[in-house]
Amino acid sequence: SHLLGAEPEKVYAMPDPALPDDDIKALTTLCDLADRELVLNIGWAKHLPGFSSLSLPDQMRLLQSAWMEILILRVVFHSLDAQDSLVFAEDYVMDTEQAKRTGLLELHVAILQLVRKYRAMGLEREEFVTLKAIALANSDSMHIEDVEAVQRLQDCVHEALQDYEQHRHGDDPRRAGKLIMTLPLLRQTSAKAVQYFCSIKQDGRIPMHKLFLELLEANT
């Protein structure tokens, strides 16, 4: 319930009506949306039990490693009821055709694979918020100062998932493990997304806000 309460508010994409409907507009909209969501996700992280008591450098390292996984999990969760479309925001849904036109097809297909996995499992909101916290705590940053403190954070969110599954899905003792086993695909998809947006950044055609740029640079 703590994690449910910490969930960031809804964000709208608000595509600029003055821009022509092309790939530049789509990518500009996505980068702007990502930047605003990142600000909210930093506020969200601070609400996780134990996160704020980590050193500031360790807080930064976890976020620098996990930010894209967190963004993608949110899109995935919001897309569970959509048909082969990704719901980036309530006012910004992208289907496969649009993804193709925007050069996002590879990423789109990878994210849809996650959507199908979680849809088949019937991913619940409680599980989604806990997985997001696990992705942050388990981000495998190479330069953590206080490994034990990060381990405590991991244990705390891992235990939350196990408790939830024990109470709500006692008939499927492997459900927590099944959820954890989806994380490699999330990591892989996130790496693809970071790579894609780094190439977009190098093209220099899409305006990007500073926080988004900062985090992209942390991964290069």
Binding site: M60, E217, A218
Partner: peptide
């Protein structure tokens, strides 16, 4: 750290 000043600032804010 200088490279990541926005992240740093947002984490320091007490919101």
């Amino acid at each position: 750290k200088e490279k990541h000043k926005i992240l740093h600032r947002l984490l320091q804010n007490s919101t």
